[in-house]
Structures are given as structure tokens and as C-alpha cells.
Amino acid sequence: MLKNKNILITGIGKGIGKELFFECIKLEANVYAVCKNKKDLQEFKFNKKKIKIFFGDVTNNKFVSKIFDYFLKKKIKLDGLVNNAGQRQRLPFEKIDRERLDHIMNVNFFSIFFIIQKFIKTINKNKESSIVNIGSIVGNKGFEELSGYASSKSALEGLTKCLAVELTPKFKKLRINNVNPGFTRTSFYSKFKNEKKSLYNWTLKKIPIGRWGEAKEISKLIIFLLSNNSTYINGQSINIDGGWTAS
């Protein structure tokens, strides 16, 4: 599905990004990845021939510019972008000051906005290309103590829809979609399950399938949207949540 496609993925150190990273390698894509910390990759084992990893923070504009300067210098045309890097924030509304709100918006929204601006300069207008933004069901559902996080994901969903309308007519074969995972077993799962038992049990009752999702299940949807099997899907926000938002 992705053989020889040039795919850029942010946030590969943990969870969905990590799983997607390995799945894209298995599918013989040329993977360019962004990881914030080198220590997150210590346990990784992979063939480095078709892989390039950039270490840094997606909110650092100089760092992001260097990544895309690399593609332009090497004359690499990108086929896919997955904006997976993000951060959770659980705080009561009245405790979110300007600094905390700025931080969550910088990581989950502003960084993606400017990465996409740079990405569209690296694509081949004559080939299929795809942007997948990783949102959350929190962006379109109400949850306690997640107002800052939800705001960042709602903004991302709005951006996705606007860009599908604005950019696709210009680039013809470019698609932009949003994937909204529900509760997923990533790095915070064990701590959440053990320390917030009542809240964890509440989440299970809200999910018709009766369990949290797996990172591999989310990555399969992302791969589908990156592939040429989804060439008529554009401007969509797809929930993958075990039925949470339907209940």
C-alpha cells in the first residue's frame, strides 16, 4: 500500500506514532520521522536504509525549517504527512492560565498549521499525496478538565476541513483528513487504569465494544488514508473509538 512512498511522521517516540512508524517500514515506505527525545528510540530496532529520523521539538520553527530544507536540498518529494505529535492536558478550566493554554495550542495546533505550510512545497502535484492530522474525539465531545486540550483538537478539525476546501483545488491530488481516536492503549494507559479506576471503568461503559483501542488499529486507518485506496476521501474527520461517539 505504501511501497516507495515518502512519508513524514511526527511524534514517533510513543503510542500511535511508534506503531505507525513500524507499520510504514513493514510496508516498504521511505520513512522520515520526527522524535522529540533520543531516549525514546533506545529500544527501537529497525533497518536504517530507508529511514531518516530528525530529533527535536515540532514547536521550534527553526528545527522544522531545517527538516524541510533537507527535503528541498535533496530534492525529495513527499507523498504523505502524518501530524501525530501532540500532548495531553488535564486541568480544571479555572486553573488553565495563558501560559498553559499557549503551550497546548502550540503543540497540538500551531505547529501543525506551519508544518503543513512547509509540506505543500515538497509534494509532487502530479502524484497522489495525503495529509493525516491526528485529532481526538475530545475535540467534538464535552469532557471535564479537558477544555484546553479539546480546544486545540477542535481547532485542528476546523483547519483540516478548511484546507481540504482551499488546497485540494490548487494541488488536485492532495487530500487532507482528520483521524479522531477514542481512548487508546498508549503509554499512559497503565497509569490511568491503576490510578483512576473509577474513571477507567466509566470509559469502558461508554464504549459499545467494551474496551480501549489498540495503537495498531489506529495506525491501520492512517495507513489507509495515506494510501491510494482512499483517493476520494477528503476533508473528513473520522472517529475511531469503538462506538463512543455513537452511544
Rank of each mutant, 00 (worst) to 15 (best):
G235L: 02
I7M: 10
T231A: 07
F71V: 14
I134L: 15
G213A: 11
I76R: 05
K193L: 06
F119Y: 15
L199F: 12
F171S: 02
I222D: 05
F55P: 07
N4C: 07
K66D: 14
G11R: 02
T122C: 15
K153P: 03
V64F: 07
G56Q: 09
K172I: 14
T10C: 08
S136E: 01
S152G: 07
Q117D: 12
K77Y: 14
P208V: 05
N234W: 02
G139A: 11
M105W: 08
N4P: 04
V58Q: 03
T245I: 12
Y32F: 15
G142S: 13
E214D: 09
L91K: 15
G56I: 02
K52Y: 12
C162P: 00
L174E: 01
Q42R: 14
M105S: 07
I240T: 04
P92H: 02
Y32K: 07
G15M: 05
E195P: 02
S130D: 05
S198E: 15
L159I: 10
S136G: 05
P169R: 08
K26A: 06
K95T: 12
K75Q: 15
N4T: 08
L159Q: 01
K49M: 04
E145N: 15
S129R: 00
K77S: 13
A155L: 10
D69W: 09
K49W: 02
K50S: 13
L41N: 09
Y32H: 09
K172S: 12
I222K: 07
I123D: 03
S152C: 08
F192L: 11
L2G: 03
L221H: 02
N201H: 12
V179P: 04
K191M: 12
Y32C: 07
G148K: 05
N126F: 13
L91S: 11
V165Y: 11
K172W: 10
V64N: 11
L81F: 06
L226R: 05
V34N: 11
T186E: 06
F114V: 08
F21R: 01
K172L: 14
N61I: 06
N234G: 04
E23D: 14
C162E: 11
N180D: 09
W212I: 03
T231R: 11
G182A: 04
F22L: 04
R185Q: 14
K197Y: 12
K74C: 07
C24K: 01
T203P: 10
F68C: 12
G182Y: 04
K18I: 03
L27D: 06
I96A: 02
F171E: 00
T160L: 04
F183H: 06
I112G: 03
N61T: 12
D40M: 10
F113K: 14
G148C: 08
K193A: 06
H103N: 15
L8A: 07
G13M: 08
L159A: 06
I222M: 09
R90E: 09
N60R: 10
K95N: 15
F171V: 03
K48L: 08
